[in-house]
Design a protein around this nucleic acid. Structure first.
Lengths: 178, 178
DNA sequence: GCCTCGAACTTGACGCGTCAACATGGGTGA
DNA sequence: TCACCCATGTTGACGCGTCAAGTTCGAGGC
């Protein structure tokens, strides 16, 4: 029908050039398929959402396996509301408990239970394997470095415009090799 | 408390090394924050989900603005079920119409309406601007190329294991500059 | 000419995330 | 010490995605 031969739906709009377009298309594999694949796998192997795993995992790295709700939200790049819902569910499954911190406002701590810790421990190897399989094993060292750069840049670009929501690529809680 | 100093929740598990860990963390910016940011922006500026925009956009690139449901599903990396729901909603908003293809099984075509085309046209510049702002403008040319490679690799790795769901990084429908 | 099978959807129930409202406890100034 | 205001969560309604069943149609045996 139309006489469009542009790369985008709208002739006349400054669209992306060939390289950008290819990169964008490839990027959507990372944006869309990767999370979906990870989620499906966690669900199958550990009855956990990817996000639930993140929550448990972050807690497991904390001293006393405990973190205040808002900090936990920041570390998992989630809204407080979402976190509250999720932690509520995890609490029903006895993987986490919440407790008000007395004498300091409305602050609340979330703490991993024994069962919760056991769940992370059980789920971790599968998670790591998936990350390796889908991503790490495919990458050359220099690609790894570039990915890191790109992620940081994206994070910065987004935060530049919406300086509210939780950090994602800042302050790696811990680091160490093997 | 615990004597863990490993980079992961489980001491003893073969976790990711420092570089991999940093890259993974950065990658989650792309996996999590980027789609969220794009979604929020499309919603604000065009009352469309990112996925709805993708659907309309793919249709707008087709001859006669028409595509069979299953093809559309493949091109948007979605399940047929999801697509059916979404197209149903878009149909209620008169942005798309569906029509059975007579004499060929249960095949159905989805076609953009005038209003649907107008909606893509209106939304496209904002979308492109967002993609540029959050991603493209941050990247050096060689990073762009690497991103493309990584995306393709991830896509391949995922499909290797789940050879069912729709393609994401294959057959760019159209390409051209300017 | 039937019977069955598979392809191509559609539908409904259910779970999760978001958004807007609400709840509650600490400050801070007057 | 009272009146606000802000920080920190929680809750409910609603929309979207997923999963498991249905629904139709065409084709292939026999």
């Amino acid at each position: 029908m139309a006489s469009e031969q542009s790369a985008g739906p709208v002739a006349g709009t400054r669209w992306l050039n060939r390289d950008e377009r290819a990169a964008w298309l490839a990027n959507s594999a990372i944006m869309i398929s990767l999370p979906a694949a990870l989620d499906a796998r966690m669900q199958r192997e550990a009855q956990l959402t990817f996000f639930e795993y993140m929550v448990l995992s972050v807690l497991s790295e904390q001293p006393a396996h405990t973190l205040q709700m808002s900090d936990l939200a920041a570390r998992t790049a989630a809204s407080l509301s979402r976190l509250s819902h999720v932690v509520g569910r995890l609490e029903k499954r006895d993987l986490v408990v919440r407790a008000r911190i007395p004498g300091s406002g409305r602050r609340t701590n979330a703490t991993l239970t024994e069962a919760g810790y056991a769940a992370v421990v059980a789920a971790a190897p599968g998670h790591v394997a998936a990350v390796r399989e889908y991503l790490m094993d495919e990458l050359e060292p220099h690609e790894l470095a570039t990915l890191r750069r790109i992620g940081a840049a994206v994070d910065a670009a987004i935060k530049r415009e919406r300086p509210d929501v939780g950090s994602t690529a800042s302050t790696p809680p811990e680091t160490s090799t093997s």
